[in-house]
Design a protein around this nucleic acid. Structure first.
Lengths: 349, 349
DNA sequence: TTGTAGGCGTTATCAT
DNA sequence: ATGATAACGCCTACAA
């Protein structure tokens, strides 16, 4: 338990280009140039200056530089919550790409609150970020007015919106969802339920479309009773499962909007005395790392999350540099078959 | 698939205080004051100016302001990887606290690479962040020289280091680990193993100490054979379990360094045909949200991660404002008993 | 190769 | 209550 009062620090001021200039007996422009390895500087002075800079622990003020260059080399990332495992991996990819390009990232949670989200974007705007990437927001519509006003390029991950400075990176949801539904169909399932998300997320809509497409192509009837909605998180799935199982048509398999939903669904099924996959097959979407560790290990769709972050950032950089870009960028999801799916009871052996 | 070439944006410049001044026919200082609701301004002009500001979509340049005020209202957060569920929740707490205080957060991954970590801190320094929080780094020692040079307050989460501008927020690891070990002892276990982390993390050391303390106080012998090390992640635990089970003394319970390790351990035990908790009890540390969803649900220690982030940020703010502070801050972990622990076979019934 | 001067968008310190 | 002016730390013509 140590205590420290450290007011003196507040007086401290970092060494500036001028300080170095004084020591080196040159003008501050010379220092500036030397520090940027400008070819207009003699070897000698350049070295001398760099030595002094190092010794004095000099660090350019990115903020002073930003003021004059009008480029902050920073971007903003707004997420619903960074605590979401899907989101955090995407951000990991974004951050990595940022490094490679000398950018820094501002991070902000919106907590899915439109007000908060607006404030965040404003704050980013004040900080003069060169671009913004938004992951998994359902309020993409908010950005259109905001950005036309701010003229900052934006990239949406798992959400889409038309617009001049707006790009998107999306999973091939329809195909992926159809893939996993087909997997169930091939196992012999006929009464396949869809457990979706409550909010009007684009990804939910698309996954639902893929589900319907696969059912239709297989000549299986679409039964509205087999469609139910959670809230995209664990909490909502339990009740949704209850509802589903108390309807007339009982499913032999459930396509879940995402892994979290699937976890909760499986748990609820267990609570109701049902076995997975013996009584009901369950599939997720995401391939969170714990999907492997579940009992049973979850059949799901693997999204290249880090890659999505990387692509989003690269797309943003293109937007920033004024290059023409292609949008949306669609990335494929890979079907990972594990043990939560099996042929239905009546068909199996 | 839409294409857009948007070079014009690059020419665009945000409206400044001067623009507003011109429109309102006042000096820029008046505008500055009006925008800050200075009492030195007449109601009328203030309103007029604010209206114009709103209409023209004016946003203060935080960077210009920062240059003159010498306060950026920003902090840096360095993490090994934001994709780690423990880390991301801590960051969630930090971010939240930042909001409440008008701060923005720069996020950077170090990937546990000292070089990278140094670069990150330098980058933060250039951006003139007012403080830095570092989570779960094992290279805390790096910071001492760096920061004495930069004089930026730092708060370490789950790591500790003495120093003038350094504070720490830590879990009461020793007690928590002793608690969970005691839980096993009370169930009747005697051959309790410890599955630790490979790196020299402080938290690992402390948890190991708690384990030993509990064993000793219960009069149980310390068996070095029962101690094995993974790598703090899933990958390392499997092999470690193999090693452990091929030694002479077979444990009836395993205290794992964290939940991830525990998941992997359970999985490996299953692979070896052993049942949890019938054959071997397993406990984790963290209470990741999926701990509930595991089969069996994991007995573990719940760390108040969000709170830790919040406390870290508040501690940092105090450091920033030069207040004297108390360090380290220790937060308790709560024992959550679930189904992965049971009396050992020979004792049961 | 180096120096001078001006400005980036604010705030702060004087005056008025 | 408002305006003029000078910073803040850096970059970049333009001059020398």
């Amino acid at each position: 338990m140590q205590t420290c009062a450290n007011l003196p620090r507040l007086i401290h001021k970092p060494t500036s280009i001028k300080d170095i200039a004084r020591i080196a007996n040159v003008s501050s422009s010379t220092v500036s140039r030397a520090l940027q390895n400008s070819p207009l500087i003699s070897r000698d002075t350049a070295e001398k200056i760099q030595t002094i800079a190092k010794q004095s622990g000099y660090r350019v003020s990115a903020i002073a530089r930003g003021l004059v260059t009008q480029r902050t080399k920073s971007i903003g990332v707004v997420v619903t919550t960074i605590a979401d495992p899907f989101v955090s991996e995407v951000v990991d990819g974004i951050e990595d790409a940022c490094n490679h390009h000398g950018y820094s990232v501002f991070l902000a949670n919106s907590n899915a609150d439109p007000d908060r989200e607006t404030k965040v974007v404003h704050s980013f705007s004040e900080r003069r970020v060169e671009g913004i990437v938004v992951t998994s927001s359902r309020v993409g519509a908010l950005y259109l007015p905001l950005l036309s006003e701010m003229r900052i390029p934006i990239v949406l991950v798992n959400n889409q919106h038309p617009g001049e400075f707006v790009n998107s990176v999306l999973i091939e949801n329809v195909k992926a969802s159809a893939d996993v539904t087909n997997h169930l169909i091939q196992l012999g399932h006929k009464r396949i339920a869809y457990l979706g998300d409550r909010y009007g997320y684009q990804s939910d809509t698309e996954r639902f479309a893929g589900y319907r497409q696969a059912m239709e192509r297989a000549g299986l009837p679409f039964v509205p009773e087999l469609v139910v909605h959670g809230d995209g998180k664990c909490e909502g799935a339990g009740p949704a499962i209850d509802v589903l199982l108390h309807r007339n048509t009982r499913p032999s398999a459930i396509v879940c909007y995402n892994d979290m939903t699937a976890f909760a669904a499986i748990r609820q099924l267990h609570a109701l005395g049902l076995c997975v996959p013996e009584d009901v097959s369950v599939v997720g979407f995401d391939d969170l790392f714990i999907a492997t560790y579940m009992e049973p290990p979850l059949t799901t769709l693997k999204q290249p999350r880090r890659l999505m972050g990387k692509l989003a950032m690269e797309s943003l950089l293109r937007l920033i540099s004024g290059e023409s870009t292609e949008s949306p960028i669609r990335v494929p999801a890979e079907l990972i078959i594990r043990a939560s799916t099996a042929p239905p009871r009546e068909t199996a052996a």
